[in-house]
Design a protein around this nucleic acid. Structure first.
Length: 325
DNA sequence: AATTATCACAACCGCAGAATT
DNA sequence: TAATTCTGCGGTTGTGATAAT
């Protein structure tokens, strides 16, 4: 029954990889490939490692053309905008960024990008409070800049604090961690929206177009929906596109233009386009090919308002609602 | 110079779905 | 068809480097 057992967990090495181990693994895979079986691979090359560990090491570090660090502004934008749309689907996000691994992006998001945005939010709020003369007293805090010029905030005792009280963290009963993750995604999404899609430290140098979707729906929903519902969505999308997005100077035009510059191919989102099947495009034709951001954005954001001003207005009116429930 | 705090990244863990027998 | 393993993914942890005190 079943397959052969996995590695002997008591007999495998853990922790950082040595250069010798890296060399062995790299040389073997470059010569023979993975053979489609990671579990037996370490035995073949005499590594006391779990196959899972070998796979991870190869995918995240040894694989050719892997880029580490040095994320560009454009990559920041892509990560943020995709996070808004699909949440922490790092593998899908990574598929849009050649040379980047899901692990890399996940680390980048958790350690820098998220803080960058939160720091920015706090800075903005701080300035607003100062202008309103409502600065709270007794908060001995100082701002510091990290190496990338981001604003962080230190409170008393060196612990991280904010310019205004953090909302109390909700306490979730056991088994509701998913909800916590959803809440975090939702709050980050709203934050990103309020940031109007600008992720640069320098607002003047940041994007002039809002690189964000209006409140509409989330991509995971699309993944989970039945084919009929997706078809309905596509039809709705086509209708919305036809009605409201024809102005080349409108939000969609700006967005498309911006996205087109990125020429980011949405590998890994094939399922969204109909699972390798057909999906209607705004021009009435169908395609089974991968699409670019500029092609899919109207599909992602079917209820996009026809102008930037209109979008700004609706962004702050009410909480995000999902239209496909 | 020593200690402590923070950051960044690599690696591990556990789960869900796919694949295999 | 059921049992079992494999694969891939996302969350979390561990650790070394660096900055601050």
């Amino acid at each position: 029954m079943g397959r052969a057992p996995c590695c002997d967990k008591d007999n495998v090495k853990k922790g950082p990889w040595s250069p010798e181990e890296d060399a062995k693994l790299k040389a073997y895979i470059e010569q023979h490939g993975t053979g489609g079986n990671w579990i037996t691979l370490p035995q073949k090359i005499g590594l006391k490692r779990c196959g899972k560990s070998c796979r991870l090491r190869w995918l995240n570090y040894l694989r050719p053309n892997i880029k580490h660090g040095g994320f560009s502004e454009e990559e920041d934008n892509i990560i943020c905008s995709l996070y808004i749309s699909i949440g922490s689907r790092w593998s899908i996000i990574a598929a849009q960024l050649p040379g980047r691994t899901d692990n890399d992006i996940k680390n980048y998001w958790n350690t820098r990008l998220k803080k960058k945005l939160l720091g920015k939010q706090r800075k903005d709020h701080h300035q607003q409070q100062q202008q309103q003369g409502r600065r709270s007293g007794g908060m001995k805090q100082e701002a510091k800049r990290d190496e990338s010029g981001n604003i962080g905030v230190l409170g008393e005792g060196g612990s991280q604090s904010t310019y205004w009280p953090e909302p109390a963290l909700p306490v979730y009963p056991t088994g509701q961690l998913d909800r916590r993750a959803d809440d975090e995604h939702a709050s980050m999404r709203q934050l990103l929206m309020k940031r109007e899609g600008r992720f640069s430290d320098d607002d003047n140098a940041s994007l002039q177009s809002p690189f964000i979707p209006p409140r509409s729906f989330t991509l995971p929903q699309l993944f989970d929906d039945s084919a009929n519902e997706v078809t309905t969505l596509v039809n709705t999308t086509t209708a919305s596109f036809g009605e409201g997005l024809q102005s080349p100077n409108g939000f969609a035009g700006e967005l498309d233009e911006l996205l087109h510059c990125s020429s980011v191919k949405l590998e890994g989102l094939d399922c969204f386009y109909g699972g390798g099947g057909m999906v209607a495009d705004p021009h009435g034709s169908t395609t089974s090919e991968s699409m670019y951001w500029c092609e899919v954005s109207p599909l992602l954001y079917p209820n996009v308002v026809p102008s930037y001003q209109g979008m700004q207005q609706c962004l702050f009116e009410e909480p995000v609602h999902l239209i496909m429930q």
